[in-house]
Simulated assay, not measured.
Amino acid sequence: MTQATQPQQSQPQQRGILMTDAAIHQVKLLREQQGKDLCLRIGVRGGGCSGMSYTMDFEDPSNIRPDDEAYDYDGFKVVCDPKSLLYLYGLMLDYSNALIGGGFQFTNPNADQTCGCGKSFSA
């Protein structure tokens, strides 16, 4: 009696930083304007009205460090250093083109408190 082997199902990539389709689309547009193949680095730094503020900028993929977490999103990488990821794991990045309150929005499940502008938090 032979056992039938079951086809292996590929597991979806687990991402510590999540992005909506609107955010992915906007990041791709902004990256194209740079004219280079860049990755998006997301992190935190001290400051802002609630204690820590979000950082987000494009950088050359050669700057990715061995201890960085990198997540692939349809051809571009989102990178985060391990210290920032402690505060950002599970973050949802969204984008809105609303005239008031538009731009990138951060929904952080680790934030105890968020400021009114949504660009800083405390944990």
Rank of each mutant, 00 (worst) to 15 (best):
V44W: 01
I64D: 00
G75V: 08
G51K: 07
P61M: 11
G46L: 07
G48S: 09
E69H: 11
M56Q: 15
V79D: 04
G47T: 02
N63V: 05
G75S: 12
D74I: 02
C80L: 05
V44N: 07
S53K: 09
R65Y: 13
I64M: 04
Y71H: 13
F76E: 10
P66N: 03
Y73G: 00
S53G: 06
I64W: 00
Y71S: 11
D57I: 01
F58G: 04
N63M: 06
R65P: 03
V78D: 02
F58R: 06
F58S: 03
G48V: 09
D67C: 06
D68E: 04
D74E: 15
G51A: 08
G43Y: 01
T55F: 09
D74N: 14
G48W: 02
S50Q: 10
P61K: 12
K77G: 12
R65M: 15
S62Q: 13
A70G: 01
D67L: 11
E69K: 09
G51Q: 09
S50I: 03
E59K: 08
F58V: 10
K77P: 00
R65E: 15
R45Y: 02
V79Q: 05
D57F: 15
P61H: 08
V78K: 04
G51I: 05
T55G: 11
D74G: 03
F58N: 00
R45F: 00
G75L: 09
D72A: 15
D57E: 13
S50T: 05
T55Q: 11
P61R: 11
C49S: 13
S50R: 02
S62V: 10
G47S: 09
P66V: 02
E59W: 04
D60M: 08
G48Q: 07
F58D: 01
G51P: 00
C80G: 09
K77F: 02
G43R: 09
D74Q: 15
Y54N: 07
V78R: 02
C80A: 13
E69Y: 08
D60Y: 07
F76K: 06
M56G: 14
D74C: 01
S53A: 13
V79Y: 01
Y73N: 07
S53E: 14
G48E: 01
D60L: 07
G43L: 03
T55I: 14
D74H: 10
C49H: 00
A70T: 07
T55C: 15
Y54D: 08
M52L: 13
D60Q: 11
V78Y: 04
C80T: 15
A70S: 14
F76C: 03
G48L: 06
D57A: 14
Y73A: 11
Y73W: 12
P66M: 03
R65D: 11
S62P: 02
Y71I: 05
G46E: 08
N63H: 09
V78S: 03
Y54F: 14
M52Q: 09
G46Q: 10
V78E: 02
G75C: 13
G46W: 02
I64K: 02
D60E: 12
V44I: 14
I64V: 15
Y71L: 05
D68F: 10
S62D: 09
G46R: 11
